[in-house]
Amino acid sequence: MALPSRLRLLRGGEATSDLESTMTALVPKAERWVVRELGPGYDHEEVLQEALSAVVLAFDAFDGRSAFETYAYRIVVRVARRFRTSERRRTVEAAPPLPDRVDPESVTMNRQALRALYRALDRLPERRRRAFVLCAVEGLTAVEAAELEGTRAATMRSRLRHARRELARLLSHDSYLRELMERDG
């Protein structure tokens, strides 16, 4: 029987007993949240380390009112946002080595698109930015994104709609990007 996460706490702390395995399971998701939240140009591993450490510190305070993943997401995003708005941002972009059997040109184009997108995203209000990242980039449904953000699905859809409108306007001014995309067809 699937129990609400709050109730799992009642099992005498079962949910908090194996900290290391819980955290290990969380790492891939947290890494994804960090990268998606920040975009390119950050030391993602450093942010990830700090975010996970914050999650561990907040572990005991988890009262089970939401899923643990939602709780962790909020902490990770908060830490990532702090990085994004602080002076520690945008150090050197360490491009990962290209994988084998991949067209270097298309990889470069993808990265350029990613950078252009995050440049535009950085100009959006915070909530609309996160709504777009979660729904359009990360591919979550409005309901899933709303649960993570602790809001209603309708609100999330509204934010997403506004974000799309503003991003389309911003990107349309990027002639290089337009040329790139049109050339790619």
Binding site: Q112, A113, A116, L117, Y118, A136, V137, L171, L177, M181
Partner: peptide
């Protein structure tokens, strides 16, 4: 343009 950019990203 937005959709194409997101798809690439």
């Amino acid at each position: 343009l937005l959709d194409a950019t997101v798809a690439k990203a």
